[in-house]
């Protein structure tokens, strides 16, 4: 009994340091501040309720991100985003030059444009890029958070980056 009560004390110690980053990630997923607040609130309540099933010593960050992501997928915002792996097959290939689109782009555009490109990505590409580049999770950790094998993490990340490149290329061309 006392161990269980101690667990509830340690929930806040483990979860609250992730609060701000989870909120940021939730905003990137839901693309709406109010929906992100609901998402984070629900994530924390679910995590607290299921904390007894969390195995101490395993990856808490991946566990709580997984709850947030699953909560998002079943939320109205998540359903609107219509997550589909089909988009993974529809990425135009990037042009192969030594002057890469990224290097051109980075020299010419502002951070806001990069953010808008990220927002334009399908949500399953956006989340894997954010977990890797923003949260700096390892492939294994991303696999735990998204509940997919490491091989799928790598292939999805590769497709997501190709899609990102395609978006950047089209913006360069428009500019």
């Amino acid at each position: 009994m006392s161990d269980r009560l101690g667990d509830f004390g340690s929930f806040e110690e483990l979860a609250m340091p992730h609060f701000a980053r989870l909120f940021n990630f939730a905003c990137w997923l839901a693309q709406d501040r109010s929906a992100a607040e609901d998402l984070v609130q629900e994530t924390f309540m679910k995590a607290l309720k299921g904390f007894s099933s969390f195995q101490q010593g395993t990856n808490f960050r991946a566990w709580i991100y997984r709850i947030l992501r699953n909560t998002f997928l079943t939320s109205q915002a998540g359903l609107r985003a219509s997550v589909s792996l089909d988009t993974e097959e529809d990425c135009p290939l990037e042009p192969s030059t030594t002057e890469t689109p990224e290097s051109l782009f980075l020299s010419r555009v502002a951070q806001e444009t990069l953010q808008s490109a990220l927002e334009e990505l399908p949500v399953n590409f956006r989340e894997v890029i954010l977990l890797s580049d923003l949260e700096e999770m390892s492939y294994r950790e991303i696999g735990l958070a998204l509940d997919i094998p490491i091989g799928t993490v790598m292939s999805r990340l590769s497709r997501a980056r190709k899609a990102m490149r395609a978006l950047l290329t089209s913006r360069i061309e428009r500019a």
Binding site: F23, W28, L114, Q115
Partner: peptide
């Protein structure tokens, strides 16, 4: 690009102190 995405996406959205307080109360 990886670094640029990190810079662009990091802390773009910050939770309000009111939301933090509300969440802590809920817990």
């Amino acid at each position: 690009v990886k670094r640029a995405i990190r810079a662009a996406a990091s802390a773009r959205f910050s939770p309000s102190p009111e939301f933090r307080l509300r969440l802590e109360k809920s817990i």
